[in-house]
């Protein structure tokens, strides 16, 4: 069994014979993931537990304490919250990554951006875990997939670009201002509540229409949910706007990283 897995892995590597860089990013993120869960006894089970417990709490609180006017509310929350969890995790790991990978950055020359790509990929592994929980939920609820699901990766890619950009910017700022960590927790808390994760999107955005455009996550959450839950055609204007937003942030992130990174190891 193990040999078979290794054989498969070897085949996988041979697809990219010359891409040492891809191998490196994959190894970095794989070990990241291992370190995160290997220290605990239940291991990978925690990766499933955390989002499940979280959604259960929200579901109970919001559907019993507040009046609910959204059908399939559990699925509604979950489809929003997995996007949110990805953003939260990858942006927070951007704050840590230089400190965590210092032992490599300090001693060996390689493309420094690789550690960021790896941390984005690590969060993507947890995202895939969450998606599998979502599929499980879909089967229980009896939701049948539609061909519109092919649009879903478009929004996930948008999310990845956005998270990478935000992570780069945060990591640059954290070199100079350690307080950014606490500040970012505050911002995340705020963002969590202004995003259409629990609420019907009309409720917030009819009150504050500008929030839809000021907040880069809102469009991604709305579109991906429309596709996944309602089988609707996505709002293409909102999607284009989301991509534009994310690319601008990524470019700022790459620029700031290039300009200020050398200070990072000196100061960490």
């Amino acid at each position: 069994m193990k040999q078979m897995a290794q054989g498969l892995a070897a085949k996988f590597y041979n697809i990219f014979p010359e891409s040492i860089r891809l191998e490196r990013i994959w190894l970095l993120s794989k070990t990241d993931f291992k370190i995160r869960y290997s220290a605990s006894t239940l291991g990978l089970l925690w990766a499933f537990m955390y989002p499940l417990v979280r959604i259960l709490i929200y579901y109970i609180v919001f559907s019993f304490v507040f009046a609910k006017d959204i059908p399939n509310y559990g699925f509604y929350i979950f489809s929003g919250i997995i996007i949110w969890l990805y953003f939260q995790e990858s942006s927070k790991s951007g704050l840590r990554v230089i400190r965590m990978k210092r032992y490599l950055l300090e001693n060996i020359n390689f493309n420094r951006l690789d550690v960021f790509y790896a941390s984005i990929l690590t969060s993507l592994i947890s995202f895939i875990v969450n998606i599998s929980v979502l599929i499980f939920l879909m089967i229980i609820m009896g939701i049948t997939p539609t061909w519109k699901y092919i649009y879903y990766p478009i929004f996930i890619f948008n999310l990845i670009i956005l998270s990478l950009g935000v992570g780069l910017i945060l990591s640059t700022i954290s070199v100079y201002y350690k307080d950014i960590k606490q500040f970012w927790d505050l911002i995340l808390l705020l963002m969590f509540w202004i995003n259409p994760i629990f609420f019907a999107k009309q409720k917030i955005f009819n009150m504050f229409p500008s929030l839809l455009y000021a907040n880069p996550l809102a469009g991604i959450i709305i579109n991906s949910r429309d596709v996944l839950m309602y089988g609707k055609e996505p709002d293409w204007f909102l999607a284009a706007y989301g991509y534009f937003y994310a690319i601008v942030i990524l470019l700022i992130g790459l620029w700031s990283f290039k300009k200020f990174f050398h200070k990072a190891i000196e100061k960490v």
């Binding site: 070897a10 970095l28 070990t31 291992k34 370190i35 490599l104 060996i108």
Partner: peptide
Amino acid sequence: RLSLGLGFNAQLTTRENVYLNGSVMGVKIS
């Protein structure tokens, strides 16, 4: 750069550290 006690992640095994460091240095996994 080789210095005392640096360069490895203490949470990883010998095998994992060898592969990680080697790959970061640009050696193919094969």
